[in-house]
Simulated assay, not measured.
Amino acid sequence: MELVIQQRRRDLGAFEVGRVLPYAKRRMVGPYVFFDRMGPKDLAPGLPREADVRPHPHIGLSTITYLFDGEIMHRDSLGSEQAIRPGEVNWMTAGRGITHSERFEELRAHGGPMDGIQAWVALPDEREEMDPGFWHYASDSLPLFDGDGIVGRLIAGRLAGVESPVAVDSPQFYVHWQLRAGARAPLPPEYSERAVYVASGEVEIDGQRVDAGSMAVLSPGKAATIAALGDAVVMALGGEPVGPRWIDWNFVSSSKERIEQARADWAAGRMKLPDLDNDEFIPLPPKIGTPREPEPMS
C-alpha cells in the first residue's frame, strides 16, 4: 500500500461532505481527479432551497453520481432532467462545456437519508473538447457480484473480465462492494493505479487497517485483498493515468489557458444554462492561484 488518505470534512449547512481527492500528496488515481462523500445524513422535510447545488459549469471531465441513500434531481444544458436513486448511475460528460444543477426536491418534500459519492473522471487529452453528453443507467443494468459474503455492482469500466455498460473514455474501473464480516474481496493488478475507499466499517489491506472515510492507494503491480473486519461497504476505483490536470473551481484541463478561457466564458454569460433550471446560477468565485481544489458537491 502506498498511502492512506483521510477525508477532510466540510459542513455545507444541510449536511457535510468528505473530500478525499484531490489530495496534496496524491492528486489523482488513474483518471479519477475528484472524490467526495455526500453525507451520510438524515434530513427532515423542509430542507432549504439554499442547500441545492445551483446551475454551474464544467469542462474537461465526466461526473459520476452514485447514491447509497436518498434522491437527487439532475438538470443540464442539454435538456436532461433525471432523478437518481440508490444503485443507479448518472454519468455526465462535460467535454468542451456543460452546465447543470443538482436539487434535493424529494428530500425537501418528504425528508429522509442522504448518502452518496460524487467522482470526477478527467478526460484524456484527445477527448477533452468532445461534445457534452448525459446518460442515466438503472441499477438492474449494471453487472452484479454476489457470493462468498460479497455483494456488489460494477459501476463503470472493466474489472476481472466483467464490463459495465457505462461508456468510459479511458481505461478504468469503479466498483461498489458490500462485504460481510470476514469476507475477502480480491482486487487484481490489471491497472497501474488503484484505490479503495471505505464508506462504512473497517477493512484490512496488505496487513494495514483502513477505517471508514479513508482511501487506501494501492501499490502498482500487486494483487490486493480487501478483508472485512466487520460488515463493510467499500468503493474500489482506478485505471490508467491520463496525465497531470489543472483544477480551478469546476474546471479540469491539461491546459491552464483553457481554464482561463472557461472562467472568462462563465463570467461573461457565454455558457448556456439548463433550460429547465435557468432562474439562478453560481457566480464565478474569485481566482485563488492555480491549480486549486474544486468546491465541494459541484
Results as ranks from 00 to 15, higher is better:
181 A>W: 08
12 L>N: 03
258 R>T: 10
57 P>W: 03
226 I>F: 06
263 R>N: 06
161 G>P: 07
64 I>P: 01
269 G>A: 08
209 R>M: 06
211 D>A: 15
274 P>G: 04
60 G>Y: 07
71 E>V: 09
172 Q>A: 11
205 I>Y: 04
55 P>T: 11
126 E>D: 15
179 L>S: 04
32 Y>M: 12
224 A>F: 00
5 I>W: 01
2 E>W: 00
264 A>R: 14
81 E>M: 10
112 G>M: 09
277 D>P: 07
269 G>H: 08
56 H>A: 08
15 F>Y: 15
284 L>H: 08
258 R>K: 15
207 G>F: 07
184 R>W: 05
167 A>K: 15
24 A>G: 06
73 M>H: 10
87 G>K: 07
97 G>L: 08
248 D>E: 09
250 N>Y: 08
185 A>T: 02
47 L>R: 05
264 A>K: 12
3 L>P: 05
232 A>H: 05
16 E>Y: 09
165 P>K: 06
267 A>Y: 00
39 G>V: 02
88 E>Y: 00
247 I>M: 13
200 S>K: 11
41 K>N: 13
56 H>N: 10
15 F>K: 02
62 S>A: 15
70 G>V: 04
187 L>Y: 00
147 G>L: 14
199 A>K: 03
69 D>L: 07
286 P>E: 06
12 L>W: 05
257 E>R: 15
270 R>H: 10
45 P>Q: 12
243 G>R: 12
11 D>A: 06
106 E>T: 14
180 R>Q: 14
247 I>G: 04
45 P>I: 12
216 A>E: 03
266 W>Y: 05
110 H>Q: 14
132 P>S: 11
55 P>E: 09
246 W>Q: 00
102 E>I: 06
267 A>I: 00
273 L>N: 02
49 R>S: 07
39 G>A: 07
295 E>N: 13
283 P>L: 11
61 L>W: 03
295 E>H: 13
85 R>Q: 12
105 E>F: 11
204 E>L: 12
118 Q>N: 10
63 T>A: 14
22 P>S: 11
101 S>W: 02
223 A>N: 03
242 V>N: 00
170 S>W: 05
112 G>D: 05
13 G>K: 02
244 P>I: 11
262 A>R: 00
190 E>R: 01
216 A>D: 02
173 F>R: 02
50 E>Q: 09
193 E>R: 07
76 D>Q: 10
91 W>S: 05
27 R>N: 12
199 A>D: 10
236 A>P: 01
249 W>L: 01
99 T>R: 03
119 A>V: 08
269 G>P: 06
270 R>M: 08
159 L>Y: 03
169 D>L: 12
270 R>L: 13
68 F>I: 06
293 E>I: 10
44 A>R: 14
223 A>P: 05
220 P>K: 03
150 I>C: 09
39 G>H: 01
144 L>I: 12
64 I>D: 02
94 A>S: 11
51 A>G: 07
97 G>I: 07
290 T>M: 15
27 R>Q: 15
170 S>M: 11
16 E>A: 13
181 A>Q: 13
267 A>C: 01
298 S>L: 15
